[in-house]
């Protein structure tokens, strides 16, 4: 098994939670973060990117639906100057091709493939062989390929699958003067 992702950056709470549960992101493997909207899947992804770029590594985010929020990512410590952002305009095939090219280029600490909110029709067009190709390309590299999606996609090719359960929003104050405190 490849070396697990070292958690050197202490402010990354979602990763700390995972680390405490003994579930580190393995290098050279595919990991999946699965969850519905507001389940916290993006928080975990941002935390992973922050930990990677915080150590001086380069990371890449293949953003299928152009959903990335640079402001919230920067606030948890993602170094934007070390993050390559590829927007695919909803085209899952382009996203897979871009992720493949980035893995082949090598040198990235994390390549994140964000397929959340992609339409079922687009996801159905992904051939299962794509995941086998990714798994083969990742072997003996220090790169973590993280797939964020609504449902499991890589199946047996995934080394680690993190299912994010739905969580309730926490508001403070008395109605109608409520303030959002936490979510996901």
């Amino acid at each position: 098994m490849a070396a697990a992702f070292p958690l050197g950056w202490r402010h990354v709470e979602p990763l700390d939670i995972l680390s405490a549960a003994g579930r580190d992101f393995p290098r050279g493997r595919i990991s999946e973060i699965i969850g519905t909207r507001s389940s916290g899947r993006t928080s975990v992804l941002h935390a992973l990117l922050a930990a990677s770029t915080g150590q001086g590594e380069y990371a890449a985010l293949v953003d299928t639906k152009d959903a990335f929020d640079a402001c919230s990512a920067a606030s948890v410590g993602v170094e934007l100057s070390k993050l390559v952002w590829v927007r695919c305009g909803g085209n899952a095939e382009h996203a897979l091709r871009a992720a493949d090219l980035l893995i082949q280029a090598g040198g990235f600490g994390v390549v994140a493939l964000d397929l959340a909110e992609a339409t079922p029709a687009a996801l159905n067009r992904i051939p299962p062989t794509a995941w086998f190709r990714f798994r083969r390309a990742l072997e003996s590299t220090p790169t973590i390929l993280t797939v964020v999606s609504d449902c499991p996609l890589a199946k047996s090719c995934s080394f680690l699958t993190i299912k994010m359960p739905p969580r309730r929003a926490v508001f403070t104050g008395q109605a109608p003067f409520l303030l959002l405190r936490d979510a996901g």
Binding site: R37, G40, T42, S43, L45, H46, K65, D66, A67, F68, D69, A70, C71, S72, A73, A74, S75, V76, A116, E117, L180, D182, A183, G184
Partner: peptide, 19 residues
């Protein structure tokens, strides 16, 4: 919105845009 720098020392909830 979406382009502003985060205030120093403040952590924001992770957000996903519909674009």
């Amino acid at each position: 919105p979406g382009l502003a720098r985060p205030a120093t020392g403040r952590s924001y909830l992770a957000f996903r845009y519909f674009r």
